[in-house]
């Protein structure tokens, strides 16, 4: 570039880009600091039955920026049509599982020893009690797991929920219920 006016134009353009980078850098750092101070409720994004171990493996996502700790597990077993096992409740299993921020953690819940393997249609209603660093309150996540129920796509699930809502007046049970409060 051998023209002073052209040099000025190029320099101003470059300065705009550098200013943009600096501005977005400081925005990024302040936003990530803000997000890092927000505790979010964990979400069970997947559950699989491990037949050999007789346990259910939950993939739990912590979408917030703070670590959370599961302190207690409990589950309710509801038998389906094919099983001869009776329904039972196992509550207050103390655990200490830390969910790192922004990551998916696998949590294994062993079913009651000596019981029959899960059959099609069996439902396990799991309750996870967790705490986060900001308060001493206990929060729970309830996840119903139905043996053999296929993981439908999000759109199909939404359509199904809508259909149920229209046919019965109210949705039967959401797949993921979250409750906050003291226990």
């Amino acid at each position: 570039m051998k023209n002073p006016a052209g040099v000025v134009v190029i320099s101003v353009l470059l300065a705009l880009f550098v200013g943009w980078a600096i501005g977005s850098f400081f925005t990024e750092t302040s936003v990530s600091k803000a997000i890092a101070s927000i505790p979010a409720s964990p979400i069970v994004i997947d559950a699989k039955y491990d037949r050999e171990e007789h346990s259910i493996v939950y993939s739990i996502l912590n979408p917030g920026g703070m670590p959370e700790t599961i302190v207690q597990q409990a589950f309710v077993f509801k038998p389906g049509k094919e099983t001869r096992e009776k329904g039972y409740v196992v509550s207050n299993i103390p655990v200490h599982i830390t969910l790192p921020p922004g990551e998916t953690t696998e949590v294994i819940m062993k079913l009651k020893a000596g019981t029959e393997k899960l059959h099609l249609g069996d439902v396990v209603l799991a309750t996870f009690t967790y705490v986060h660093p900001l308060s001493t309150d206990l929060y729970t996540v309830v996840h119903p797991f139905e043996m053999g129920a296929k993981k439908a796509s999000k759109a199909a699930q939404a359509a199904k929920a809508q259909k149920e809502a229209s046919s019965q007046g109210a949705p039967k049970e959401t797949s993921n219920k979250k409750e906050g409060g003291h226990e």
Binding site: M1, A15, V18, I22
Partner: peptide, 21 residues
């Protein structure tokens, strides 16, 4: 790096300007 980019941009621009003049 971003802090260093400001004086670097000034050097670059003034170098080009000096060349042009």
């Amino acid at each position: 790096m971003l802090g260093a980019a400001i004086p670097t941009l000034l050097v670059f621009a003034l170098d080009l300007l000096a060349n042009a003049y």
